[in-house]
Simulated assay, not measured.
Amino acid sequence: MEIVMSCQPSSIQVAGVVITQDAHGRYSLNDLHRAAGAELRHQPSNFLRLDATREMVAALTRSSDLRNGPVESIRGGPNQGTYVCEDLVYDYAMWVSAEFRVKVIQVFKTHQRGSSLAPVAPAFAVPKTLPEALRLAADLAEQVEAQQAQLVAQKPDVDLARRYLDSEGRDRCLLDAATALCIPPNTFYAALESEGFCYRRPGLNRKKKKKNRLLPHAEFVTKGYLVNRARLAKGAKGVERDVGQTMVTRAGMAFFHHRFAHLSTRQPEQLALLDA
């Protein structure tokens, strides 16, 4: 059964990314992942599988301080993702790096000081006349509209990360990758070669009388964007032989989505919503 849950507006931003909160005040782990750089190794599913994380979730679940569970995963709908309590936010940030944890703590402390119930000077002058009140209302509406616009702008990246970084699918061959990215295959191949992601051995394939296949440069294999997979192929006489094949990883799909967006035959927001 699909869970439908509303999310409340959030003023918390880490590294320029708005950290969405669910109806119970838990924070989006997917947004934190994006704020941390959206690396494949830091995706939320990896964090939640850690023994230390499971122990922490169990301890928080037993705690009487939490009225709602420490973790909630929403499948489907505009607010899909994983939401966690503040304690797990800090644990996730520390798992990513000490530097990211310091950044997250500073942001949350600043936010908490701003939300303190202690008497503080108002953030704006209290209107004394009707025109001043109308001007204040218009200013606040503009601020809300700007934040909503940022969330909308982030949505294609969020959808993309869910499809390519959290997907359980396998790596894609270059043809499948080009199709998913809505880039003509020959255009995609040429871009990979001209921009230095792949190369071809000199000369022609004597048997097929065409260019040698594309091979990934080691730099982008190390970064996790491309990989050279070995596979068996049958020759004309039915003899199997090892044939390498350049594949695009999930992280590579996300990278090339941004790098080659100008080559796509669709708009970026449409591309982000394509089925994997």
Rank of each mutant, 00 (worst) to 15 (best):
A141P: 02
V227C: 03
A236N: 13
E219Q: 13
E195S: 09
P131S: 11
P131K: 12
T129A: 09
L181N: 08
V120Y: 08
K234W: 03
Y199G: 11
V227L: 05
D166I: 05
A153G: 04
L134M: 14
Q143C: 04
L174Q: 04
C173L: 07
F124M: 11
V144M: 10
P122N: 15
V227E: 04
Q150F: 08
F197E: 02
H217V: 07
R200D: 09
E168D: 10
G238R: 12
A153N: 11
F124H: 10
V239A: 13
N228M: 01
E219H: 13
K223A: 11
Y225Q: 07
A178P: 05
G224R: 02
F188D: 06
V158T: 10
A133N: 09
P156G: 05
K211C: 02
C198T: 05
Q148M: 05
K208D: 13
G238H: 08
L151K: 04
V227F: 07
F124W: 14
C198V: 02
A137W: 08
A149S: 10
N228L: 10
D166K: 00
C198G: 04
G169N: 10
L165K: 05
C182Y: 06
K210M: 12
A218S: 15
A177K: 04
R162V: 00
L130E: 10
A233Q: 04
R241V: 15
V243M: 11
E132T: 02
A138I: 06
D242W: 13
F197N: 01
L214G: 03
E219F: 07
K128R: 13
K208A: 08
F124Q: 15
P127M: 09
V221Q: 08
N186R: 11
I183D: 03
E193V: 08
Q154L: 15
A180C: 08
D242P: 12
